[in-house]
Simulated scan of single mutants.
Amino acid sequence: MKNLFTSFMVAILFIGCTQNMVTGRKQLSLVSETELQSMAQQQYNTFLSENKVVNASVNKDAEMVRRIGTRIASAIQKFYDAKGLTTVLDGYKWEFNLIDNKDANAWCMPGGKVVVYTGLLPITQNEAALAVVIGHEIAHAVAQHGSQRMSQGLLQQLGGAALQIALANKPAETQNMFMTAYGVGTTVGVMLPFSRKDENEADQYGLYFSAMAGYNPQEAIALWQRMAAAGGTKPPEFLSSHPSDETRIANLQRHMPEALKYYKPLKR
């Protein structure tokens, strides 16, 4: 029986591993992007209805979040179109919202559903630094890191059950798993933390994405130094799975020459 279970799990892992079009590495993927985007739309709408959304029409910070996000989304679309990888963003319908919440947090669900918390703004301090954060979160979504975490959760908790079965049999647990996989709420980084490889990729591509959108990627260094300082013994929610440290800053500096190739300052 034990050998049968082991063989079953190996088969799931073999079948569920796909090559990511963005990063090129193999990832566990038991849930389709279409399914995740559908679930994301529902969960995003629920989250917005239960939290205080800052009106971008009357608030300059909310307008800034939307402006940065729109520029990054446009830059990413052009980048992948030029590489013949248009399908990377299939189904994406971008939304960018600022939430009145004191936590230092931001996240992006599948399909480009982005939220920034007001508690993050005193740390980012300027538009370019916030662009680095939004680029980082979008990179997690585009590289399907959350999909991998969701797949890991299904494998660990529900034995590799399909998403539809998981939702039907344990809807609350599955929805909580989804929210945790995408860094929403206070449990981020506790149940299904991003791996160091995922964080490094999000740092790297987030740097590129913000630079492509016309934001100076060199702002990332001071940003992560402020992130580390803001955390003290406990990192901000945004960094709970991978605290900012010298290694992260060193990696950013390593990717900086490539990021600067993409950087063309915005015309004011």
Score class of each variant (00 low, 15 high):
174 T>M: 01
112 G>A: 07
53 V>W: 07
237 E>F: 00
147 S>K: 06
235 P>R: 07
212 M>I: 07
175 Q>D: 14
88 V>G: 11
36 L>I: 06
186 T>Y: 08
70 T>D: 12
10 V>W: 08
143 A>N: 08
253 Q>W: 03
234 K>Q: 13
216 N>R: 03
189 G>S: 10
266 L>E: 12
38 S>E: 13
215 Y>M: 04
94 W>D: 15
44 Y>T: 03
207 L>H: 00
11 A>W: 11
13 L>R: 15
72 I>K: 04
172 A>V: 14
7 S>R: 15
9 M>F: 12
31 V>R: 03
65 V>E: 12
141 A>G: 02
89 L>Q: 13
28 L>G: 05
204 Q>V: 02
217 P>R: 04
206 G>L: 02
5 F>S: 14
259 A>L: 01
37 Q>F: 01
171 P>H: 09
233 T>V: 09
188 V>S: 13
136 H>V: 03
42 Q>D: 12
180 T>C: 10
12 I>W: 05
55 N>S: 09
237 E>D: 11
79 F>V: 00
79 F>W: 10
99 I>N: 07
155 L>K: 09
119 G>A: 09
198 D>G: 03
51 N>F: 01
137 E>I: 06
101 N>W: 09
76 I>P: 11
101 N>P: 07
224 W>V: 00
192 L>A: 12
147 S>W: 01
131 A>H: 04
198 D>Q: 15
10 V>D: 15
142 V>M: 10
116 V>S: 04
175 Q>R: 14
185 G>A: 07
1 M>G: 13
56 A>F: 06
95 E>A: 13
31 V>A: 08
201 E>D: 15
247 T>C: 01
181 A>F: 02
61 D>Q: 13
83 K>S: 10
47 F>G: 08
75 A>V: 03
203 D>G: 03
219 E>S: 14
262 Y>Q: 06
214 G>K: 02
60 K>G: 02
67 R>M: 12
42 Q>E: 13
5 F>V: 15
245 D>P: 05
187 T>E: 15
21 M>H: 10
65 V>D: 11
237 E>N: 14
246 E>W: 00
101 N>T: 12
219 E>A: 14
60 K>W: 00
